[in-house]
Nucleic acid binder design. Structure first.
Length: 254
DNA sequence: CGTATTTGACCGGCGC
DNA sequence: GCGCCGGTCAAATACG
């Protein structure tokens, strides 16, 4: 069963406001048949209606954020740790199936076959579909990264880029980004470790939520890719999709 | 001028 | 022990 969560970021609540009669439209209608009090009433009801929809939207986004955070907490970082010692890792360029929209996230317990005392680190892979002509090895995931190396590996002609979290050394997370050997339009990002800080964009989202959805719609801080990642991760969690469906039903019933 | 990126050198694990 | 190879360092360079 495939569940899809579509978050249409083109639905701009602020743009809805542009349909609310403003000074220009008032001029346009010239006050011929409607009294000013009637116009005020229409304006007022339009705003209230908008506010009502915005509240629903805020609640839904809040639910998405909460579930995303909960889900992330259910995959504690050290649980899937694996050794950084180099061993034959054949899955390095393996292709998992990827949806047309690009983001696929998988948590891989690659250290499970190691010795009991082996120090292991959390490794996850994210597959991102990109424009084949795009040569940049950039996977936008909401975090800030500093590139510290690039290398051409033996089993893949395309270079592999090495990134550290910009919060390093306090945050030990690293990621490797390389085109798939089989599909040049596919970027494979391998994450090692877990961030010991919040996603900066996540904070921004929380702040913007408090400010109101009008500002959310215009905020450059709300990363499309982050929402995609959240959606991708969350939709793979059956309990979340159930909870979200229930929440949506409940919200629109009230 | 401060910060980020590039890139060749270097390090260390692994296989032979 | 030696060479290969992935990963990291750090000086040089680019960029805002």
């Amino acid at each position: 069963m495939e569940t899809t969560l579509d978050i249409d970021l083109n639905t701009n609540p602020r743009s809805n406001h542009s349909e609310i009669p403003n000074e220009d439209s008032e001029k346009e209608f010239g006050g011929e048949s409607k009294s000013s009090s009637m116009k005020e009433e229409l304006f007022d009801s339009a705003v209230k209606s908008d506010e009502f929809e915005n509240k629903k939207l805020i609640e839904l986004i809040t639910i998405v954020c909460e579930n995303y955070n909960n889900l992330m907490q259910n995959y504690p970082g050290d649980e899937l740790l694996k050794s950084r010692k180099r061993k034959a890792h054949s899955t390095e360029n393996g292709d998992n199936s990827v949806g047309k929209n690009g983001f696929t996230c998988s948590l891989c317990d690659e250290g499970s076959s190691g010795t009991p005392n082996e120090i292991v680190s959390n490794v996850s892979k994210v597959h991102v579909r990109i424009d084949p002509s795009d040569t940049s090895l950039v996977v936008k995931d909401g975090y800030q990264w500093r590139k510290y190396g690039q290398k051409v590996t033996r089993d893949n002609p395309s270079p592999r880029a090495y990134y550290k979290c910009s919060f390093a050394p306090s945050c030990p997370v690293k990621k490797k980004v390389q085109r798939s050997v089989n599909d040049p339009s596919l970027l494979v990002a391998t994450y090692e470790g877990n961030h010991n800080h919040k996603n900066p964009n996540e904070d921004e989202i929380s702040i913007e939520l408090l400010k109101g959805v009008n500002d959310i719609s215009s905020s450059s801080f709300v990363s499309l890719s982050m929402v995609e990642q959240m959606a991708s991760t969350l939709t793979r969690n059956p309990s979340f999709t159930e909870a979200l469906a229930a929440a949506i039903t409940e919200n629109f019933r009230s």
